[in-house]
Design a protein around this nucleic acid. Sequence first.
DNA 1: TTTCCTGTTAGTGT
DNA 2: AACACTAACAGGAA
Length: 286
Amino acid sequence: MPELPEVETIRHDLEKMIEGKKIAQVEVLTKSIVEPNNFSKIVVGKKIITVSRRAKLLMLKLSDNWQLLIHLKMTGQLIYRLGRGEVAAVGGHPIALGLQVLPNKFTRAVFTLNDQSKLFFNDIRKFGCLKAVRNSVAEKIKIQYGIEPLTKEFTLKNFSKVLTRRPKMKVKQFLLAQELIAGLGNIYSDEACFYAGVKPTRTTSSLHPVEIKKLFSAISQVLKKSLKYRGTSSENYVDASGRSGGFVPHLMVYGRAGEKCKKCDKNLIKIKLGGRTSVYCPHCQK
DNA sequence: TTTCCTGTTAGTGT
DNA sequence: AACACTAACAGGAA
């Protein structure tokens, strides 16, 4: 689940809770997800200056020109708990409530801050990772990503420029390419294609100027809307009531193969595109 | 039980 | 450049 809106939601919540605090202790429970070997040694004692995000990557700026990079990949999760034990904020892939005892078998690392609050990094599939890198390295990583939607640089002009440079790519694959446009995953790329009325299988060069414009607006629209609902399927395991993710009811195509299109009532179709599932409406998307 | 599916991405080969 | 395929890994659904 963690695509741009989810990671941004987590970033936003996290920043309020941990900025300005010091990392007092780190317990690495799964060594393989951490880099470098002396990760703990590097980050312990450092102050968390800012919490930022590039694409789906969380970047914690630390004192002494270090940065702590957190990628949740598919099933990563961050849970923040105050010293007393109550959960204050979470984000990422949902895990059954019974497993929210912390740490649990999916807890890969635990950060204790100087006020005794704790940040748990959980990940079922161990795809996620924690990296300590110097500022200079972090900057290099940042520039490897493409245009960041929801920023000033995301203009129709910039978008068209990047798109036209990859004429043979299929639209869906273009939207998923982090080095071209940052932050979209399988959910929002399908949703953006639907909003734009474009089949995911179209090549970028086949798009008319009007369609490029539509796709451009679709991207910011769908991301903003999801952000408003705090992302798709997440966050809410804070409270034991188990409310489901805010944006799920607003999904038009993702996860709805075989169901009826919310616009025209025809059946939605599922196809495979480069190993990823794509769902679209054969009637509304040309 | 087994098989297939999954929100990511880095890396390889063609 | 673009695409296919794989590997990391583990749970849930069918």
